[in-house]
Design a protein around this nucleic acid. Sequence first.
RNA 1: GCCGAGAUGGCGGAAUGGCAGACGCACUUGACUCAAAAUCAAGCGUCCUCUGGAUGUGAGGGUUCGAGUCCCUCUCUCGGCACCA
Length: 843
Amino acid sequence: MVPRKRSLSSLFRDARLFYFKEAILLAKYGKETDAKWQKKWEDTGLYKFNRDRVDKKFYCLAMFSYPSAANLHVGHWWNFGLTDSYARVKRMQGFEVFEPMGFDAFGLPAENFAIKTGVHPRDSTQQNIATMRGQLRTMGAMFDWDYEVVTCEPDYYKWTQWLFLKLYERGLSYRKAAPVNWCPSCNTSLANEQVDGTSCERCQTEVTKKHLTQWFFKITHYAEALLAGLEKLAWPEKTKTMQKNWVGRSTGASIRFAVADSTAEIEVFTTRADTLFGCTYMVLAPEHALVDLLTAPERRGEVELYRDYVNKQSEIDRLSSTHVKTGVFIGAHAVHPLTGDQLPIWIADYVLATYGTGAVMAVPAHDVRDFAFATQYGLPITRVIGGATPEVDDAVPFVEDGILVSSAEWSGLTSATARERIVEQLVTNNQGRATINYRLRDWLVSRQRYWGAPIPIVHCDTCGIVPVPENELPVLLPYNVDFTPDGQSPLSKSEEFLRTPCPQCGIEARRDTDTLDTFVCSSWYYLRYPDNRNASAPWDPSLINRMLPVDMYVGGPEHAVMHLLYARFITHALCDMGYVNFTEPFKALTHQGIILGADGEKMSKSKGNAVSPDAYIDIYGSDVFRLYLQFGFNYLEGGPWSEDGIKAVARFVDRVERLADRVGELGRGARPQSLGPAEREVEYVVHNSIKSITRDIETFGFNTCISRLMEILNSLGRYDTEAAPKHAGFMRDSFAQFIRLLAPFAPHLAEELWAKLGHKNSVHLQEWPQHSEAALVKDTVELAVQVNGRIREKILVPSDVEEEAIKAVALTAEKVAPFLAGMKIHKVIVIKGSLVNIVVKPE
RNA sequence: GCCGAGAUGGCGGAAUGGCAGACGCACUUGACUCAAAAUCAAGCGUCCUCUGGAUGUGAGGGUUCGAGUCCCUCUCUCGGCACCA
């Protein structure tokens, strides 16, 4: 075991000692090369994170993965391997890169596998993790396994439970009875974010509603902070937009309507207070709490019938916008707050109990849904907004802003002004107020499944809900449990787990038998990584505040409103509680695309189009596989797998090795005193590549990085065959530069060739090359000469020549002349280093 | 329906408003070979009257000396949201 605290120089010394030992250089790159260097890197602790250099830290994180039984798939390589190449560049650039790895190990697949095969989730998960660890090592990434995190281990979930308790103390975790999303196939409740339209995000089964008492995290408390925090994040705009939409902030007014012959009031939320005078009826959601109270006796039968009918409708039907709206009058009337008119109160399935107040003021003239409903049931339609200009098509429903009409003293105002003025009046009358509504719902975290972190709560008949004291954590997940899914929490069937003395009164009580959503486990793992062995606290703030935020986070876009929103919420909450001093955990974010099967379909075993990395690695070695992934696709887009592509990359590696042999044959000749044209040409390509790669790696443009490497190789190959005289020293230096640039992208191959060049230390301890602008200035440049934007000629001019001289050459160029005949030269535009455009008009 | 992203050779994909197609794949031709593979060299958008010219980045308009790139309209593809008051 390598001690953790090591200075860079001691690392360097160890590495040197090791590298001084005679290295067996292999004839040709392949998996043996991989194995050899992986062992050396591990033995020398080459990639161990050095805490002494935390001020230079670069926390590079790829979303950890679920441990699966099979070998690594293309997606793992794509995410982890390429992120590693990015991190390697950062490391060569002088950063102390922190690149940990771990496993999101709780969750349904292991439990479902157990139900099918009888293998306990703990056993299968541990087995899978062992397999994956081994597999991940063959990738040759810089993972520092000293910092591994496994979420299903008690030393991790102890702190997941701690997190739950802290949120509970703070009032951010609470229990309530509510209709919740229920997946009949997974047999558990789900959070809103985990329902994809109307189906379960995991298994695509259509979700139903179930009335349950469950634990929620009060993410809505952070709605505003989560929106504001997005501003400063270097995240894809698309992802930020998705989060914004998910939070769904909408500004409007809350208006209270009195009910005739009743003390009850109906509160509605509206973004269109300007249309208040057009309100001709009220609608409550069928589930609204006031329905029972307000329904007239003679309407009760019909109302009950209707509520039953709505109950039986499936979610998918009710939410469909093509669904024909239905509803019934409940026999009561509301009073318009400004006119005193009596407005019939209806219940209808188009009003959602879960948004706003579950009630709306219906303005059929200015809302498409109210319009459809009013038309269908013959309710009055009163127009109160006119088009701002006569050209506006003002058929009803007219949903745009305009000028108020038939609205008492507010007539003539614009919608925007009226919204403010009408609310002011309502405030004066104590009938309403300006308010903001969010679409975001609190995060339901209870799951009626076995393989998760137990909720650290005890239910006591006398004391009620009692949190498990911190010093009694973790609440261990018992091993022997019947986890056949039947909708009951498996833990409720375990007597040994269930029964426990109440921490407060000591009388026998019952533990909470639900487990936490696995998204809770993954909402804080990035905080545990740097301090993963801390037994007395989830982390040491003095360390974490220096290690975080994550500098680059890489993972799939499918987590945009799940994991990424949850993690931000938890960090905001932890900051408020003083456990960390930052609110945003992920400074920068990159979403990788998806590698599809050769048929363009998503890879899957059932489709038979899955590509096994192992087969290719066996033949070509892991760097060839990694290089192909880097070269063959745009990282942000992905694309279909191609067999031909990987052969092309294997060929590139062959050529690199042949060139290395040539460099060996040529020996260590001197560098030329001054560079000749042939050398200048090579220098140009090398430095142009350094500049491009350094820039492109920042945006994960691996494909163009590899292209630039190929250009260097082509250039050196040309130099080798064509230059006379040829300078061995120059060739060797240029090749060494190439190997440095290659190192992050093909770490084993580069290491092998670096050793072959006679170097005694690792190429991965080298500094990243810097380009020289001087090398990018060519002696002569080729300029395109255009006449009216069309290329007519190409001229060679010295690069330092003045604009006037360029014009002169261009105007007298042989093939240009015919196009100038009989024309008047209007102007001549010179773009240095690129082109000349002669603008002419007929004389 | 609303919001967002995208459309470039036979294919994967490049191009701070400045020579479209970098870098590759596939293909064609040549060299080497008894032959094949490998390798090396050359060619490779389309069309024509072919040492040249015209045309060309989903379609149509516009701005500009100059547009794949900026603006408008449309088509299609992909993502997200969707009775959210």
